[in-house]
Amino acid sequence: MGKSIESIWKDGFLKDDQLVVPKLNDLYNQKSIHIIDKILRMGKYNLIYLVVLAAFFLVMGVLIGATYLGLFLCILIVAHIVLALKHVKQLREIDKFVNSYQYIKSFDNWLQNSISEFMLFSRFFYPLFFLSFVIQGRFTEDGDALINVLISKVPDTTLVFGIPLFLLVAVMLFAGLLAVFGGLLYKLDLNIVYGRVLRKLKEIITDMEELRR
């Protein structure tokens, strides 16, 4: 080797055409595509998980002799899947041929709309999920035994359909709380699974808006 690496470096970069600066345009194009792809991929896995979960509840219900409970839980989850598929259909209607900022904004609008609908759905989902277990429990031997114990402890309690009123009130109160906070529970669940990627999406939109200014 005739030349040292230092001189190759120095001489090489003496020529003017070596350091051509790339143009900075459509800065966030790749980023927005990546983040949306990631969210969609996660959503797809979530849907598959829900299908498996629905089937699991149905099969387990039949196997443990709680067919109605299994069927009801399966229907509840299928309702969740149907709602998700409705939103997937809406997503397909977003115009992909606009610029990346408009696309990511449309995606974010779709996402916020989906989240608010799922929050509303969750206000029914969680109480019904809870109540289905309570109702199933009522018709088991253990459920009977529990009610008998409660009646023996508080013999003067009022019974409604053979259930102590205070127990009924407690169950309805808890179901009511689930209805009130169902949306928040959904958001908590959403944050655990999608939190990081949703924050990233927000960050990108903020940056893009600043860049546009």
């Binding site: 690496i5 190759i8 001489d11 090489g12 970069f13």
Partner: peptide
């Protein structure tokens, strides 16, 4: 990437 062959090799 560069027009200088030695630089490319480096």
């Amino acid at each position: 990437a560069f027009s200088d062959e030695s630089l490319n090799l480096l």
